[in-house]
Amino acid sequence: MLAPSPLGRVLLHLSNLLVIAFLLLPIAAVTLGALQAEKTLQADTRALLPPEWTLDNFRVILSGGEQRGAIFEQVTYLPDNVKKIRFAFTNSTVIALSVTVLTLAMGALSAWTIARLRYRWTRWLVNASLLARFVPVITLMIPLYVAFRQLGLLNSVVGVIVALTGFLLPYAILILAPYFDQIPKELEDSARIDGCSRFGAFWRVSLPLAAPGLASCGALVFIISWNELLIPLILVNKAEFMTVPVVINSLVGDVHVFFNLMMAICLLALLPSVILVLLLQKFVVAGLQVGGLKG
């Protein structure tokens, strides 16, 4: 790149500030909302910063409604979903972790056969994955609801895990197949000469070398399954089996729930995936650029 002129440099800094402000706008709003009471929010509808800060919103959520703090002393109604939000965080964690492990395991097995064994039908599997990525979730959910209802799989964490894994496998294949393809084949060949089976060469040689690809894929799969709303929304309707996005969804339009409480829940909900993205930044970028995933 050519060095920008002094004036150009100022304009570039200003543009960056503008973009950064836009990127941080919702983050600032959710944080400020979560750290104040409904009362201060309504007292002055024009001030940017509240006169008082409070952690009561978090206290109520984390204690499941046991500790009410100063804001919620007078409040008699608290939705069941909010009281049981600890279930939701446990469910979301179990579901996101299981889906990540399952998708990585199955995806790696398939991706290696696509890159190394090269049959016409494994090539076809890549095309099927590409097409599958475009299928709208809503189109899948209507028949899955009917089928799971008949099988008695509604309101089950396993049902959500199976549905999400199937939905995300094409993503894993599209990221991992090119990754295995660029690992030198000679490494596996020499392992074979030393007496390794084909599967052994995959297991002991290629799989460890694919660790960065697995990290990219795993980070994306975890984020997408942690964030997914429609699949658990349609397969689950009891508070014990809900995930965090489903609980958030249930609060939309509930006039009895303060915006501040909702913002505190949103903040807790976005923390795990935000931390993951910032920690694994390099891998997330690589995965998005290779897989061309949904934005």
Partner: peptide, 19 residues
């Protein structure tokens, strides 16, 4: 920071913007 929005659960994003 450009990566940040990618991590936000879409339903939480909607609720934050409605706020």
């Amino acid at each position: 920071l450009i990566l940040l929005p990618y991590a936000i659960p879409p339903i939480a994003n909607g609720l934050i913007w409605s706020f």
